[in-house]
Amino acid sequence: MGPYRLGWAAVARLPVWPARALFFLVAEVVRRQRGAGVRQLHANLAQVTGAPPDSAEVRRLARLGVHSYLRYWRELFQLSRVRPPVIFERLDRLPVSGRGAILALPHSGNWDLAGAALAELGHPITTVGQRLRPEALYQRFVAARAAVGIEVLPVDEPRRTVPALGRRLAEGGVVCLLADRDVTGAGLPVRLLGRATTMPAGPARLALSTGAALIPVSLWYSGRDLRVHLHEEIAAPPAAGRRAQATAMTQALADVFTDAIRRHPQDWHVLQPVWPPAVLHPGGDQPEHGERAGERRQPEHPVPDP
């Protein structure tokens, strides 16, 4: 058994309170070290709040954000035996007539916990996942999610994954896609939290090609609970052409995400660039992430980041 699986297994067996104490300490260490990810979190939260990255408000939210992020990992490692309460709001917005649903959500709260709770209510879900290295770690993630009713399809195998998503939706299934960060450079232009960027095209294009309902979802922690709100379906507008329709639907997603993130910024777990660096730092240093202003990664696959 490799070190990753050993660590995962050890945390999974910890009682709740020791695990909370351990991850609290880890979060404090991560926060105080101010590595590249934490500095990027400050930059992202500055965009959310409109305050400077080193302001007291951003520092406060970043501290809470690091702890929320480590809480996600603790809950994931213990998902097979410990389930914090999940409270769904407007679950009635899921289609009931055999029509498929695409739940599009930002990297907020704990999407794995929400997926497990949804599966427990009789709605097993399908999602996509980036292939991690080493392969054993990726397979551990796939197995852990499968054990709680979450099917993970590989994001780097689009010829297999895209048709499989279509079949799940045709069967009336639920597909969950994280949709606030474009990792491929092939996304659609939007304004997110007041700034121009791109977001994955997959949710909107999949809805248009299958007729499934596109439903934005927001997640946040409320004390010990995870709250999950299903927003109104985003319908295809009467636009000329599929690309125009997909762009309008993706902008509608961005608008919902903007409101949700501003309401609960401390639970938005994005430690990577979301906007072009020149937008985040119009007069200051650029974040250290290996991209120059205006550069985007080359497209790798047509489905969104999990």
Score class of each variant (00 low, 15 high):
residue 257 F to M: 08
residue 123 H to E: 06
residue 68 S to W: 04
residue 56 A to I: 05
residue 282 P to S: 08
residue 37 G to L: 08
residue 73 W to R: 02
residue 265 P to W: 00
residue 22 L to I: 10
residue 231 H to Q: 02
residue 146 A to H: 15
residue 81 R to H: 13
residue 7 G to A: 14
residue 60 R to A: 13
residue 253 L to N: 03
residue 200 P to V: 03
residue 125 I to V: 15
residue 225 D to V: 06
residue 134 P to T: 12
residue 206 L to H: 01
residue 268 W to C: 04
residue 170 A to C: 10
residue 63 R to F: 10
residue 25 L to C: 13
residue 7 G to S: 13
residue 191 R to M: 07
residue 60 R to S: 10
residue 121 L to T: 06
residue 292 R to P: 00
residue 189 P to N: 07
residue 147 A to K: 07
residue 164 A to H: 08
residue 173 G to W: 13
residue 58 V to Y: 00
residue 111 W to M: 09
residue 288 E to P: 01
residue 100 G to K: 01
residue 21 A to I: 07
residue 171 E to S: 15
residue 71 R to A: 03
residue 175 V to E: 09
residue 94 L to V: 03
residue 101 A to I: 07
residue 135 E to M: 15
residue 239 A to H: 14
residue 93 R to T: 04
residue 5 R to Y: 08
residue 119 A to T: 11
residue 19 A to M: 09
residue 51 A to R: 15
residue 297 R to F: 02
residue 36 A to I: 02
residue 168 R to G: 02
residue 167 R to G: 01
residue 203 P to V: 04
residue 210 T to A: 03
residue 220 W to S: 11
residue 144 A to P: 02
residue 225 D to G: 02
residue 61 L to N: 00
residue 291 E to Y: 15
residue 263 R to P: 08
residue 165 L to P: 09
residue 169 L to M: 12
residue 256 V to C: 14
residue 66 V to Q: 01
residue 188 L to P: 04
residue 250 T to N: 11
residue 140 R to H: 14
residue 303 V to F: 09
residue 80 S to R: 15
residue 232 E to V: 05
residue 276 P to Q: 04
residue 28 E to K: 13
residue 38 V to P: 03
residue 80 S to M: 07
residue 1 M to Q: 13
residue 127 T to H: 00
residue 182 D to W: 09
residue 241 G to N: 12
residue 234 I to C: 00
residue 147 A to V: 07
residue 78 Q to T: 09
residue 179 A to V: 07
residue 141 F to L: 15
residue 146 A to L: 13
residue 221 Y to E: 06
residue 286 Q to P: 05
residue 12 A to N: 13
residue 96 V to Y: 09
residue 26 V to S: 14
residue 143 A to M: 12
residue 149 G to Q: 06
residue 160 R to Q: 12
residue 142 V to D: 12
residue 87 I to Q: 14
residue 173 G to D: 05
residue 21 A to G: 15
residue 176 C to H: 05
residue 210 T to K: 04
residue 208 L to Y: 11
residue 248 A to N: 13
residue 165 L to Y: 06
residue 66 V to A: 01
residue 246 A to R: 10
residue 287 P to S: 07
residue 113 L to E: 10
residue 193 L to N: 00
residue 283 G to P: 04
residue 165 L to M: 09
residue 204 A to K: 12
residue 88 F to T: 08
residue 239 A to F: 11
residue 304 P to Q: 03
residue 209 S to I: 02
residue 297 R to N: 05
residue 216 P to M: 04
residue 37 G to H: 11
residue 244 A to D: 11
residue 91 L to Q: 03
residue 29 V to N: 11
residue 90 R to S: 14
residue 5 R to N: 12
residue 34 R to F: 13
residue 125 I to H: 07
residue 157 E to M: 06
residue 181 R to E: 06
residue 99 R to Y: 03
residue 14 L to F: 01
residue 55 S to Q: 00
residue 171 E to W: 08
residue 22 L to P: 07
residue 277 P to I: 05
residue 154 P to M: 01
residue 212 A to E: 04
residue 93 R to D: 01
residue 223 G to V: 05
residue 125 I to L: 14
residue 293 A to W: 02
residue 194 G to I: 00
residue 71 R to G: 00
residue 290 G to Q: 05
residue 208 L to S: 03
residue 63 R to H: 14
residue 134 P to A: 08
residue 102 I to W: 01
residue 87 I to R: 15
residue 146 A to I: 06
residue 227 R to E: 06
residue 278 A to R: 12
residue 301 H to P: 02
residue 204 A to G: 09
